[in-house]
Design a protein around this nucleic acid. Structure first.
Lengths: 236, 236
DNA sequence: TCAAAAGTGTTGAAAATACACCCATGG
DNA sequence: CCATGGGTGTATTTTCAACACTTTTGA
């Protein structure tokens, strides 16, 4: 007989908060739950941790299952362990958030899950404690994005400054001055201006930029002021 | 029959990284493990999550068990779930860090655990993945303390500016200019100068300060610049 | 009386903010 | 030709960093 015999063993699940950006708004990918309890209700994508499987692996597996995507940006957020959070049986949930390029995803959606993108302003009632998870994830993203360039994970390879600013404006529910905004992002040194323009959004067209991957990786953990006054995120 | 029958159930433990400040250095409280595996080796204080017990409850219970203290500052750090992290049986560990006033603790130590305070520069080899946990906790504390007044949790009710600066100097392994440091902390508006002085540390004596609890609670989540340039914590 | 630590102010540099006009082009 | 959105520069204010001397008093 092996093991710590007298202790209780508990189910462990992963839940993923999947963010995407459609060019004007931050969105959340939710699925319609296909089994009891709460069949038919909206929910985060999740699944049980399998035997021999680490959390990051499990999360990658679950993300791939729904979106078809590998090598998605993801980060462990928090673990929820309220003993009654799942009415069927005690289950703890290790929650991750993921940031994906919504365009890549569109091509690969797994239709089995009845997934839909929801605006953050219109999140429905979710099962269990999933609304709380979403709230925490939003505030973590706001927090982290104020200092680190994580939001680029939401953008396609080429993007314009107006798109980028839309993203920041939306996330912080404010309107940054575009002159100051462009100065701030350009002084990070992370962006490389392209020769082509994006022409569909305006008559004049806006220049494309690409991330300087090298500098991005090197400076990911530095403190870059994407937000001049982080106190704006107190209320989020 | 209830439950999600086909899934594996796993042991869930809590581990606590307990920080204290002895007036000149940040320290870590470790115990000598009293049972197999790894009996006799140094380890974080921990325990299994009990039936019906939430993580915060379990952590509070475990902290009380060792230190005798209730209402300790604690925060969930991360959950470690590598399938082989515990050689006896798969066990996930929900890790918390706690900041305690080392003086309060001294009176209440539970001798059963052979606990000792270790300087962060002299952490021994710990069991399992506990060294990794400690490393993550240190960097989280550095990160958070750069913007939020958490380090006051380590200090007694009355403390002096030189003591406070020792704490910050130690944590960031640097020496802040004391004029600039005192300006920074005073402009937070969180400190109330007392009439008495602390006389043991110097001939002149240093004025005591107390936290303005009201403002402390109100501003806990604001961004207060305790550290002027947070990039110094890149290397930690 | 002197060594040791506490306490305090100013100045120059850098960063952040506020603010307004011209440009390019598709319709 | 004009409406729409893209792009850019400057002046002012605020914040940060660097820096040195005086005070107190126990030994």
């Amino acid at each position: 007989m092996t093991g710590y015999s007298k202790q209780v063993r508990i189910l462990a699940a992963i839940d993923c908060i999947i963010f995407g950006f459609d060019g004007s708004e931050l969105k959340l990918l939710l699925i319609q739950r296909g089994f009891e309890p709460e069949r038919g209700k909206w929910s985060l994508m999740g699944g049980f941790v399998q035997e021999g499987e680490a959390f990051d692996q499990a999360t990658a597996r679950i993300l791939k299952q729904l979106t078809g995507l590998k090598e998605v940006y993801m980060e462990q957020l928090h673990t929820f362990g309220n003993p009654r959070r799942d009415p069927i049986e005690r289950t703890i949930s290790v929650v991750y958030f993921a940031l994906i390029d919504i365009d890549k995803y569109k091509k690969q959606l797994n239709e089995d899950y009845h997934a839909e993108w929801f605006s953050l302003k219109e999140i429905p009632d979710l099962i269990f404690d999933h609304n709380e998870m979403v709230k925490m994830a939003r505030s973590r993203v706001c927090y982290k994005a104020a200092f680190h360039p994580i939001l680029f994970e939401l953008l396609p390879e080429k993007f314009t400054l107006p798109q980028l600013q839309n993203l920041y404006d939306g996330i912080y529910d404010t309107e940054f001055d575009k002159r100051n905004f462009s100065k701030r992002v350009m002084t990070t040194g992370l962006l490389i201006k392209q020769k082509e323009k994006e022409k569909s959004g305006s008559k004049k067209g806006a220049f494309y930029y690409k991330l300087d991957k090298r500098k991005y990786n090197a400076n990911f953990h530095s403190f870059l002021n994407f937000i001049s006054n982080p106190n704006i995120l107190r209320d989020i």
